[in-house]
Amino acid sequence: MRTEGLSKHYGGVEAMNDANFFMRRGEHVAIVGDNGAGKSTIVRQLTGVEQPTKGRIFFDGHEVRFGGPMDAREAGIETVFQNLALADELDVPSNIFLGRELTRFNLGPFSILDEKKMTEIALEGLKTTGVKIPHLKNTIRNMSGGQRQCVAISRAAAFASKLIIMDEPTAALGVAETAQVEEIIKKLKAQGIPLILISHNLRQVFDLVDRIFVFRRGRIVCSLDAKNTDGSELVELITGIKHAEDVPGAMPN
């Protein structure tokens, strides 16, 4: 995955400017930055939710242009959004298969759902996350934040063939639930599935990823190896006290 000069303007507001982002196969990278630094903006461009104002995206060796979220998904990119993007009134399998339901007879919009198969696959997906859900056929409305997050993550993990993007996956979770999500991320690493993690939690970032991109005011400050930096340096880069050229080993945008 690579972007060249990716920019997004909302009216006169430049949410993201000239971002040259890149990652290698199998790599886990993090995107960090203050609120409004452009973290979520780049995610929306990479996942096809929005179309960039300028710039190009390359994925898996080709230039891609995602007209909508479905295009990105078809290319093998799955996203766990900050607001989870789950339908509260639907059960677990329905949420996992939302928008790409398995059907038995194709009758256009009135195609018959293959609930049995969807439930089986959902169950498999949840087993890999190790999360306990009392009854798959209950709506997710009454589930805990951790359970819901695991549903969202298993959805991503079940379909992602090439890349998973997680936007603040643990922002709303408790300690044990956060640990659970981090464990899943480590499993994905072991399986060699590339991941982009957007997080405010620097401890988590150091724990989980290989490389870190620092965003500040809609621009990429630099990217650096997670092993060659520490928390305080990262904070200084995020807040703008230090610049890319002050940090040895940092690769400016």
């Binding site: 939710v49 909508g68 979220p69 479905m70 998904r73 996203t79 959004f81 607001n83 989870l84 993007a85 789950l86 339908a87 509260d88 009134e89 639907l90 329905s94 939302l98 928008g99 790409r100």
Partner: peptide, 13 residues
């Protein structure tokens, strides 16, 4: 799905 969370439905394609 749409009545439950229209935004999620949209993002899900």
């Amino acid at each position: 799905a749409i009545g439950s969370n229209a935004e999620a439905a949209r993002i899900s394609g």
